[in-house]
Design a protein around this nucleic acid. Structure first.
Lengths: 112, 112
DNA sequence: TATCCTACGTACTAAAAAGATACTAAGCTG
DNA sequence: CAGCTTAGTATCTTTTTAGTACGTAGGATA
């Protein structure tokens, strides 16, 4: 039984942050938007600092929140593909904005 | 000695999320962009579910990251005003977008 | 002189998130 | 039947985050 909480939120901003907050969600969504489809193992390599447990957990949360799609192929060895759903796609423009902001900040920091 | 970490980050997106992530940062920035200037006590009332300790801690982090300005008036009773700095201002479009996304999602959820 | 006010600071504690590491399923190949 | 592969699980420990409760300064007011 996967535990899903963010049961209550005080406003839409709070709601949104509960869905994209967390250490890896932004990066996972970003990579999915770049590659369109990624397998579990590929995500694990790209988001290199994530542990399998955290990856599974994070993907499940994103799936439960309707941001990504999980396609299971009943093969051996197993194959599972992840892709963005519409709600997830809609988040990409501002994840991108945030990325650019981060880059600009890093550049400024470097200069000071 | 205030402990500041987010010492290491793996990319600009990671960097950015470490600055705006956290339970209340988005909301604080948002309210500051709406009201321009807010005192500690005002923020405490607006972000009604925050404890004084978390508010102080969060404001310190935002200040250390250069997102907000803290103006202390040496009066009694004390008066401290908070406002956005440029780096913080630049995050507002993103936060606003996220807010709208959250609203749309909530509306969709309500319908299903 | 006691009490109030505002914006904190400081323990200490509890809860949540994250991390490390080992293990499983299940069929194919040699 | 041992070993390989992929996509996870399970369990335990550590780290981080959040919350409670109380303390402080110092002028204003009763």
């Amino acid at each position: 039984m996967t535990k899903i909480k963010h049961s209550g939120y005080v406003c839409s901003l709070d709601y949104a942050f509960q869905r994209v907050g967390g250490k890896y969600k932004g990066r996972i969504l970003w990579h999915l938007s770049e590659e369109k489809i990624l397998r579990y193992g590929e995500l694990r390599r790209i988001v290199w600092d994530i542990t399998p447990k955290m990856l599974t957990q994070t993907l499940r949360e994103l799936e439960n929140d309707g941001l990504i799609h999980r396609e299971v192929y009943h093969e051996v060895p197993p194959k599972v593909e992840y892709s963005l759903k519409e709600a997830g796609q809609e988040l990409i423009p501002f994840i991108n904005y945030l990325r650019e902001w981060g880059e600009a900040q890093l550049a400024k920091e470097g200069m000071s």
